[in-house]
Each structure stands twice: as C-alpha cells, then as structure tokens.
C-alpha cells in the first residue's frame, strides 16, 4: 500500500514538530491517553493505513491515514521523569490525531 496509490498526502515531513490532539472520543482508539496533548518531532513516515477507528466499526477505514513515528522527550511526557534528560519515547500517530 503506497501513499501514491491512495492519494493521501502526508501534511508533515520528517523533523516537523507536531502536537497530538487532546480528545477523548469513544471507540477503538490507537492513540494512548498518556500521549494526548503532547508535542514531539516526526521521526519517520511509516506509510498510510486504514483508520483503525473505522475498521473497528466494520467500515473500510478509507481514505487511509498517513501514519507517523513521532519522538517525544520523556521529561515532557511524564512530570518528574527520573532518567536521562535525553531519554525519549516513540509512538505511531495517525495524521487525524495531529493538530
């Protein structure tokens, strides 16, 4: 499945600073609560995948959403994080979860 075939254009490039939406919709959500509202940097673009929230409702999940690998600084994510200042956590964030 390529981005070209689907015609889904990634809005953000590698290195872009992005923020995860702070929202709490019901359903099958692949964006963990702990990362909502936090900002990180796009580490890579993984491709485009059918929206899992739609798939869970027996729909086709199309158009596929670009999926980003986003790197967050641990000390931004967890108040009082004890560990190296350079420690990071990376997650996959769908484009519709980026604001």
């Amino acid at each position: 499945m390529t981005l070209e075939k689907l015609g889904t254009v990634p809005l953000y490039g590698v290195g872009a600073r992005v923020r995860v939406r702070r929202a709490a919709p019901l359903g099958h959500i692949r964006t963990p609560f702990y990362i909502r509202g936090h900002a990180g940097v796009v580490e890579r673009i993984c491709g485009a995948f059918p929206n899992p929230e739609e798939l869970a409702q027996q729909r086709d999940g199309l158009p596929a959403q670009p999926l980003y690998r986003v790197r967050f600084r641990q000390k931004d994510v967890w108040p009082g994080y004890r560990g190296g200042a350079s420690d990071v956590i990376e997650l996959e964030i769908f484009q519709h979860w980026i604001e």
Binding site: R71, G83, V88, E90, E92, F94
Partner: peptide
C-alpha cells in the same frame, strides 16, 4: 533510552 510503543500498525 528510547522506548518504542508499538501502538498501531
């Protein structure tokens, strides 16, 4: 340390 959460695909 890089933690990788395999939260999607």
């Amino acid at each position: 340390i890089r933690v990788h959460d395999s939260n999607a695909d």
